[in-house]
Design a protein around this nucleic acid. Structure first.
Lengths: 342, 342
DNA sequence: AAAATTTATGCAATCGATTGCATAAATTTA
DNA sequence: TAAATTTATGCAATCGATTGCATAAATTTT
């Protein structure tokens, strides 16, 4: 039974076994230069005495932490919690630890989170940017110290920072093209802050599809908001006031799409007959709303796994981050009833 | 511009300013026994030189980590990601850091997570138990070391561990009572592993309500599964085979309820007329499914905040954990169309 | 049997911040 | 002006694990 009074250290084990602390240290990490029997004895004693390695002492000496930091806008979105789950899985399987913080969509908090991560001497950082982040200076101290910073999903184009994302341009292009092919002529696009690649790229894709179908881009049809359910409901009311009514809506997330559909249905609009709707993300709710929502499937869990693997492989020197600077994951358009007009 | 070669320490600052490291250390944490001007100079120099405190050294010396550990079954459920978001908020506002890991619903992983948390010398631990955890021995090392462990939601009754949860018995009782009042006589109950308080208590509440309405408990009507959408669909098929058909379903999570409703509707069952349905959690999908789902609202974000606050207050000696051993949060029945028969 | 090599262990410095105790300097009180 | 007090700073030990270098012991080679 371990003594509850005081934490056991390698010195305690050393003393008990009449060996040096150095030998204990080596034995516990299976260093080849320790006699098999000694090793066995030490491991047994450590077990019996309830020894737990002090990672602070170890990290201090070794100058690395085995900690991966994660900064995301919010933890409680369907997509992000999938990403985090994927990251956690990989990180944990590789004997790293995970420190997580959320920027709550503000650059200010993101900066303070980054400082904390630096103090905690993370070995690497995974970041998805806040809604209003305009610069990434706050990650420079990491680069200076040679700590890899990897952006995912909400990225920032920059030589120094590898990135993982999907082809938002293409995905949005395909969504819009699909809507056009269903006969839509006036498609409202609900999107977020154009600072963020994901939203800017999707707008580009939307425009490109219109262009190919010889439809003039109409700025009036683009609504920019914070992508919450609440704002989407407001947007839907705006849409109801439009004259003529649009015949399609492409929102950049499913939360907005669902919220819109609910308002429009309540107003007596037939979906997809009068207005076809498509979202983005394939949230669970996409298969619950009636009609089921056409959307872009985009596996968060997988993105988390890939991002974490890439970082850890790099840390283990198994992979050069600069070499695989950008990684583009697959996404797919899923057509459901909310946009299908035959 | 900070030198990129080497990490700046208090010794570097001390040398540059011709003071001792002790003074630098004190100045940086605003110790009263340092001259104002000296302080100012030191803080300025630290800033200029790009000094970042090494938390390992500091933690090693101070013997605490400012880290809160969290172990949950899964990160990617609507409820749990809300809880985590709440925890992160409070933890971050109090200058603690958050280490998170998921047990993936197995006791084995939970044990290994607990070991890692111990090595990381967390100051306190927040835990929601895995599906199949039968013993909590693996948390004893924390108690021995006087590290508080607090259970939330999926708790384990034990003197040493304070806990935060909702009154599952009462909530389930009210749900069932409500269904009975809508005229239901044969209510199927879909629930999870009875090892877990949340599910056992809800079954108790279900039984209690039946009893009060002089309806005999029928074991055939209780379905135990893993509460996934998939298993719920299977359960719904089973229900469709029942003869006579039940006239009510009470599932212990909304994911199951939604999945059931979808299957039942497809089979032509009218909800709530033929079968009234109620869930638990008030997931976002509850307001998306048609008919909208009657459920128990149960604020995850708040539970996370409360749990983290309780732990941190205790760590700051502002509160004795033993004193507030159990904290029961409020939950409320939300009646929607899926069960309303007038 | 001596020399060379291999194996096993220990010594002691190091990582960087903290803090009890001592002391010097400045200020107040008698 | 001397004594007492307050303020400011430094010394040096400490937290626990790691690791380069040295050395002793065992084994192999000549």
């Amino acid at each position: 039974m371990p003594d509850s009074g005081k934490e056991i250290t390698i010195y305690d084990i050393a003393e008990k076994l009449k060996v040096s602390a150095a030998t204990v240290s080596r034995a516990l990490k299976d260093h080849p230069r320790v006699n098999k029997n000694t090793k066995k004895k030490i491991i047994k004693a450590a077990e019996e005495m309830g020894y737990r390695s002090n990672s602070f002492a170890s990290n201090l000496r070794r100058k690395n932490s085995n900690i991966i930091g994660v900064i995301v806008p919010r933890l409680n979105s369907s997509f992000m919690s999938d990403v985090i789950a994927g990251i956690e899985k990989v990180v944990n399987d590789n004997n790293y630890n995970l420190i997580i913080s959320q920027s709550l969509e503000t650059m200010k908090k993101e900066i303070s989170n980054a400082r904390a991560m630096l103090n905690n001497r993370v070995d690497g950082l995974l970041v998805s940017l806040a809604y209003d982040t305009t610069s990434i200076e706050h990650f420079e101290p990491f680069i200076k110290r040679n700590i890899p910073v990897l952006f995912f999903d909400r990225i920032f184009e920059h030589e120094q920072y590898p990135q993982i994302y999907i082809d938002n341009f293409k995905a949005a292009y395909e969504v819009t093209k699909h809507l056009l092919e269903q006969g839509c002529k006036r498609i409202v696009h609900i999107t977020g802050n154009q600072l963020r690649n994901v939203y800017a790229e999707r707008l580009r894709g939307y425009k490109k599809a219109l262009e190919e179908h010889q439809i003039d881009f109409d700025g009036q049809l683009v609504i920019i908001n914070d992508l919450s359910a609440k704002e989407a409901a407001v947007a839907a009311e705006t849409i109801l006031q439009m004259d003529p009514l649009p015949d399609g809506i492409f929102t950049v997330n499913d939360v907005s799409a669902v919220s819109c559909i609910q308002v429009l249905k309540k107003a007596g609009i037939k979906i997809p007959e009068q207005i076809a709707v498509a979202g983005f993300n394939n949230d669970p709710a996409a298969c619950v709303i009636e009609p089921n929502l056409t959307t872009v499937n985009y596996k968060g869990y997988e993105m988390g796994e890939v991002a974490a693997n890439m970082l850890i492989n790099h840390l283990a020197n198994r992979q050069d981050l600069q070499q695989t600077h950008s990684l583009i994951l697959r996404s797919e358009l899923i057509i459901r009833e909310s946009s299908r007009r035959k």
